[in-house]
Amino acid sequence: MTASLSQLSGRVWIYPGDPDPEAVMPCVAVVADDAGSTVVDAGQSPAHARLVQSALAEAGLPAARRLVYTHHHWDHTWGACAWEVEEIVGQESGATLLSAEARRSWSQEYLQEQVVANPRLGPSFKARARAMTGWADFAVRAPSRTFTDRLMLSGGIEVRHVGGKHAPDSTVVAVPGSGVLLLGDCFYPPPFHLREPGPAGEEIDLRQISALVAEGFDWYVDSHSPPWRPPVPE
Results as ranks from 00 to 15, higher is better:
residue 61 L to H: 03
residue 169 D to Y: 07
residue 75 D to R: 13
residue 103 R to V: 06
residue 93 S to R: 06
residue 114 Q to S: 07
residue 89 V to A: 02
residue 128 R to V: 14
residue 139 A to F: 05
residue 154 S to D: 15
residue 101 E to H: 12
residue 168 P to D: 10
residue 136 A to L: 14
residue 160 R to W: 06
residue 109 E to W: 02
residue 83 W to L: 00
residue 82 A to Y: 01
residue 104 R to M: 14
residue 149 D to C: 07
residue 166 H to T: 09
residue 89 V to D: 03
residue 70 T to F: 01
residue 134 G to Q: 02
residue 71 H to P: 02
residue 65 R to C: 06
residue 149 D to Q: 10
residue 88 I to K: 07
residue 96 T to G: 04
residue 171 T to N: 02
residue 131 A to N: 12
residue 78 W to Y: 03
residue 140 V to I: 05
residue 144 S to V: 11
residue 80 A to H: 03
residue 156 G to K: 04
residue 64 A to G: 08
residue 153 L to R: 13
residue 86 E to M: 05
residue 153 L to H: 06
residue 161 H to W: 15
residue 111 L to Y: 05
residue 170 S to D: 14
residue 101 E to M: 14
residue 96 T to R: 10
residue 129 A to P: 03
residue 144 S to D: 09
residue 72 H to D: 00
residue 162 V to D: 01
residue 137 D to E: 15
residue 110 Y to M: 06
residue 68 V to D: 12
residue 82 A to V: 10
residue 143 P to V: 02
residue 147 F to H: 04
residue 104 R to L: 15
residue 108 Q to P: 13
residue 140 V to T: 08
residue 120 R to F: 06
residue 124 S to V: 15
residue 150 R to G: 05
residue 162 V to N: 02
residue 103 R to L: 13
residue 130 R to I: 02
residue 73 H to T: 12
residue 106 W to P: 04
residue 106 W to G: 04
residue 132 M to F: 01
residue 151 L to E: 09
residue 75 D to F: 15
residue 139 A to W: 07
residue 143 P to H: 08
residue 160 R to E: 10
residue 162 V to I: 12
residue 91 Q to T: 01
residue 78 W to Q: 04
residue 111 L to K: 09
residue 165 K to A: 10
residue 151 L to R: 14
residue 102 A to K: 07
residue 145 R to W: 05
residue 112 Q to F: 00
residue 108 Q to F: 00
residue 147 F to A: 03
residue 98 L to A: 00
residue 153 L to M: 13
residue 139 A to G: 09
residue 130 R to W: 08
residue 84 E to W: 10
residue 123 P to N: 15
residue 143 P to W: 09
residue 152 M to S: 11
residue 85 V to Y: 02
residue 159 V to I: 13
residue 135 W to D: 11
residue 125 F to Y: 15
residue 124 S to N: 09
residue 89 V to R: 01
residue 114 Q to H: 12
residue 86 E to D: 07
residue 62 P to V: 05
residue 131 A to F: 09
residue 78 W to T: 04
residue 101 E to I: 01
residue 96 T to Y: 02
residue 136 A to S: 11
residue 145 R to D: 07
residue 93 S to H: 08
residue 116 V to A: 13
residue 167 A to F: 01
residue 165 K to Y: 08
residue 136 A to W: 10
residue 111 L to S: 15
residue 90 G to K: 05
residue 72 H to Q: 14
residue 148 T to C: 08
residue 140 V to Q: 09
residue 116 V to W: 05
residue 112 Q to V: 11
residue 159 V to T: 05
residue 85 V to M: 00
residue 128 R to K: 04
residue 103 R to E: 15
residue 92 E to R: 13
residue 106 W to T: 09
residue 74 W to R: 00
residue 138 F to V: 07
residue 81 C to A: 15
residue 63 A to P: 06
residue 102 A to E: 08
residue 68 V to T: 11
residue 77 T to I: 04
residue 94 G to S: 04
residue 74 W to F: 14
residue 66 R to W: 02
residue 126 K to G: 03
